[in-house]
């Protein structure tokens, strides 16, 4: 009898320890899209189809609160779900999410940006560390989305444009929630249509946003609508 119990315990332990090994990985892969071309990462991205000689030098944003849903109910939510996607860092373009069990889902939901509770929670580490360059120092708050570059249209020093979008306090809340119908895929590829964003901005008139504002929120919404899921 005792022997049987011993074996049962051993068996249970084996299953439990195996559970970690048998983690199911789900990945989100981000690329930039310009026209029909997709870019993985680059120091500088020249928009070939744009006659205004637009170059992107910085493109980084936060992806947070990743959730998998089935019939609008959350079946899995990543813990400590904060990822800085930075197009100058290839490794950051792929987000791996580990789940103990195999997920049956029909929607993928995540935020672009950082929620208000996290914004008022003090110093944090890893991708939320202020040394990542995504924090406003003169007025507390995370920068959700950073887009910088140059264009001949900008009558500025070195023809530069800088769009730092954020804001967590009403009425300038920059956080955007994205939902995509995706069914049970282990790899979801997402593309950001950079031309759509650039053409929405009148670079001759508007070439920088540096604080929570009406223009910032408007551009955050345009950016949110520029993400799509694509199939390879």
């Amino acid at each position: 009898m005792i022997q049987k119990v011993k074996y049962s315990i051993l068996f249970c332990l084996l299953i439990l320890s195996n559970k970690d090994w048998a983690q199911n990985l789900y990945t989100m892969q981000f690329v930039v899209k310009e026209g029909a071309t997709r870019f993985n990462f680059s120091d500088t991205l020249t928009l070939a189809n744009d006659s205004n000689d637009v170059q992107i030098t910085t493109l980084k944003f936060y992806v947070s609160k990743i959730q998998f849903l089935k019939r609008h109910k959350i079946v899995f939510e990543e813990k400590n779900s904060f990822h800085l996607v930075d197009f100058s860092n290839a490794a950051s373009l792929q987000i791996a999410i580990a789940s103990d069990s195999k997920l049956s889902y029909d929607e993928l939901r995540f935020n672009i940006g950082i929620d208000s509770a996290t914004n008022v929670s003090g110093a944090m580490g890893n991708d939320l560390d202020p040394t990542k360059g995504m924090y406003w120092t003169w007025q507390s708050g995370y920068i959700n989305f950073k887009l910088e570059g140059q264009s001949v249209l900008c009558n500025t020093r070195n023809n530069e444009f800088q769009f730092h979008l954020g804001g967590y306090m009403s009425p300038y809340v920059g956080l955007q929630t994205l939902i995509f119908p995706v069914k049970n895929k282990t790899k979801v590829s997402l593309q950001l249509d950079i031309s759509k964003i650039i053409t929405s901005i009148d670079l001759a008139k508007s070439n920088h946003i540096m604080s929570p504002s009406t223009e910032g929120v408007l551009l955050s919404k345009i950016i949110a609508n520029s993400f799509t899921v694509y199939h390879k």
Binding site: N119, V120, S121, G122, A123, P130, Y135, T137, W138, Q139, S140, G141
Partner: peptide, 13 residues
């Protein structure tokens, strides 16, 4: 302008 003591030092720096 600063919402948490932890983030305060960033402003003068």
């Amino acid at each position: 302008a600063i919402n948490h003591l932890d983030m305060q030092a960033l402003a003068p720096i």
